[in-house]
């Protein structure tokens, strides 16, 4: 066996992604009656490419809508050869799709596409995220006002913040319904959260992303609010807290571990 010898499964797998290779001949594949298998091997090629393309279509519906089916399938075909799934859990497939789109030269005229892909995928990830009992407005109201600045909160497991240089929320919304407004010409950050079972995307107000990043780092409420106000003087803590609580986005932080 030479150092260059590939196992039969390695050759078979290589052939699935390389239509120009004579895999059926190399592996002596037959039709059952002793004849060469010929294009019967293509059944597997087609199954692999079409099923993985379909998985990407399901995870990235907004990218699909922006590109159209024909373009999406052509691009998915390139991506799935470069980055096939690393797990049999297909809901996880596509972690690198946003970065791939960022760097894919023919799509340089759609520079926001990578952010849209990351938002699509955050919604899928949120759908499968762990359940948690969110903090309610009543819970917060029961805390003495003097204790609020030191309160530590955490983001629910389904939450993800997407910071974008583009009007990400507007672009996403514009592709969800026919009567949505044109995206504005400003940068927008988006929160993905899951009130019960259905993930939602919310436009974050000024300072919102900085506030959530501070909470996520374990900063107490008072420090996080100061950080957000420094990031944007228009930061409105009561309004954002009300929205986050009604969207089920906040939890009591787990007790700090004592060293």
């Amino acid at each position: 066996m030479s150092a260059h010898h590939l196992s039969d499964q390695a050759l078979f797998a290589e052939g699935l992604f390389s239509p120009e290779l004579p895999t059926a001949e190399t592996l002596a594949l037959r039709d059952g009656r002793g004849h060469p298998a010929g294009r019967r091997f293509s059944v597997y090629r087609n199954n692999v490419a079409s099923s993985l393309t379909e998985a990407l279509e399901q995870t990235f519906p907004t990218v699909l809508k922006l590109l159209g089916e024909e373009n999406f399938r052509a691009i998915a075909g390139i991506f799935l050869r470069r980055e096939p799934p690393r797990s049999p859990i297909l809901a996880r497939y596509g972690a690198g799709f946003g970065n791939f789109l960022d760097e894919f030269e023919p799509l340089a005229h759609l520079p926001y596409l990578g952010d849209v892909a990351r938002l699509d995928r955050a919604l899928v990830t949120a759908y499968h995220a762990a359940d948690a009992t969110p903090l309610r407005a009543e819970d917060l109201a029961a805390i003495p006002p003097d204790d609020l600045p030191a309160l530590r909160l955490a983001l629910a497991p389904a939450c993800q913040v997407l910071v974008s240089r583009w009007p990400l929320f507007g672009i996403w919304q514009f592709n969800q319904s026919d009567d949505a407004p044109q995206p504005p010409g400003v940068a927008q950050s988006v929160l993905v959260t899951r009130p019960e079972f259905d993930p939602i995307a919310r436009l974050l107000p000024p300072g919102g992303a900085a506030f959530l990043a501070a909470l996520d780092k374990g900063q107490p409420l008072g420090v996080a609010a100061d950080t957000a106000a420094e990031a944007d003087p228009d930061f409105d803590l009561p309004a954002l807290l009300g929205q986050l609580l009604s969207d089920g986005a906040l939890l009591h932080a787990p007790p700090e571990e004592t060293p």
């Binding site: 039969d8 692999v48 049999p88």
Partner: peptide, 17 residues
């Protein structure tokens, strides 16, 4: 069948000799 090679999941039930 097999469906994974070299860490890549191929999402099909592939045949065996």
């Amino acid at each position: 069948a097999w469906s994974t090679h070299d860490g890549a999941f191929l999402n099909d039930l592939l045949p065996l000799p």
